[in-house]
């Protein structure tokens, strides 16, 4: 196939522009984290990462409660994963294997959760958590997040269970093994890759979440990294390098795992949207 050299050149230029647009902010995050405040605010930012400043960055980061924020983030993310997978696998199994009255309605409701702005739930949940003593507790944040992760997990797992032949379960049914046992010991191991993908999605759903955490957690000791990072905005005590260093540490796990399971995420989100 012949290609026009001018078109090829245009295509290369286009890709260069798109890649720069997409990658620059992350490059800049790394570069800024290795700059000094004098450079950044007075003499002008050095446009490449100065690795010699790494010890300064590590020292600056030690002044910020990064580790506590990260561990709170991990607790929220882990809790979200465990509960969402438990509820999501049961729901996904039911939607895949049973025909029953109200099945379409449940699928529709699950789809609706992807449409509802989270901001609409903040005030009622805030009121509920006051009376349950869950305000200012990581539990409250986890419980609120799970509501939004369950449908996503259920869609992904339903899709995976649909692809497994029902005959595999039949022998167990004849041996009158309870359904929940079939799900746990026969079906779930067979869909391990999808289960893992759903777990990653739920984990980083909780990892990235900001609105519930910033509303329900007042105690800085309980803040996840998203809330801690946001608290840097408008605060000028912390060196900018430490702010960007924290942002980078918070981003790297998410980026690595999102890139690993990108196809599953797309499949889950679009199939959820298509099938309702």
């Amino acid at each position: 196939m012949k290609t026009n050299p001018l078109l090829s050149l245009l295509r290369v230029l286009l890709i260069a522009v798109l890649v720069t647009f997409a990658g620059f902010p992350i490059y800049w995050m790394a570069t800024t984290s290795l700059g000094t405040d004098t450079q950044l605010f007075n003499t002008g930012q050095v446009p490449y990462p100065q690795l010699s400043n790494l010890p300064d960055l590590i020292f600056a980061l030690s002044e910020v409660p990064v580790l506590r924020w990260m561990s709170n983030t991990a607790i929220i993310a882990f809790g979200n994963t465990v509960f969402s997978l438990m509820l999501g696998s049961v729901l996904g199994y039911a939607l895949s294997r049973f025909k029953f009255h109200g099945r379409g309605m449940i699928g529709f409701l699950m789809f609706m959760t992807q449409v509802i702005p989270e901001a609409l739930l903040v005030v009622p949940l805030y009121a509920m958590f006051i009376s349950l003593g869950l305000l200012n507790s990581l539990w409250g944040v986890i419980l609120a997040n799970v509501g939004f992760s369950v449908p996503v997990a259920a869609f992904i797992l339903k899709g995976a269970i649909d692809a497994i032949p029902y005959e595999i379960e039949e022998s167990a049914i004849i041996d009158s093994c309870p359904r929940i046992g079939i799900l746990s010991f026969i079906v779930l191991p067979l869909i391990a890759p999808s289960l893992a993908a759903a777990a990653v999605i739920c984990f980083f759903g909780g990892w990235n979440e900001f609105l519930f955490a910033v509303t329900f957690l007042m105690d800085p000791d309980l803040w996840p990294a998203a809330v801690g990072l946001a608290s840097f905005i408008g605060e000028y005590e912390t060196p900018l390098s430490a702010v960007m260093g924290t942002a980078l540490m918070f981003s790297i796990p998410a980026v690595v795992f999102f890139l690993l399971v990108q196809r599953k995420i797309v499949a889950g989100l679009t199939s959820g949207a298509v099938k309702g």
Binding site: A22, M244, L248, A254, V255, Q262
Partner: peptide, 16 residues
């Protein structure tokens, strides 16, 4: 590289 914008957590992206 082109997927970064989607994979980076919103709050971290906002700061940069």
């Amino acid at each position: 590289i082109m997927l970064f914008g989607w994979a980076v957590p919103s709050v971290a992206a906002t700061l940069v």
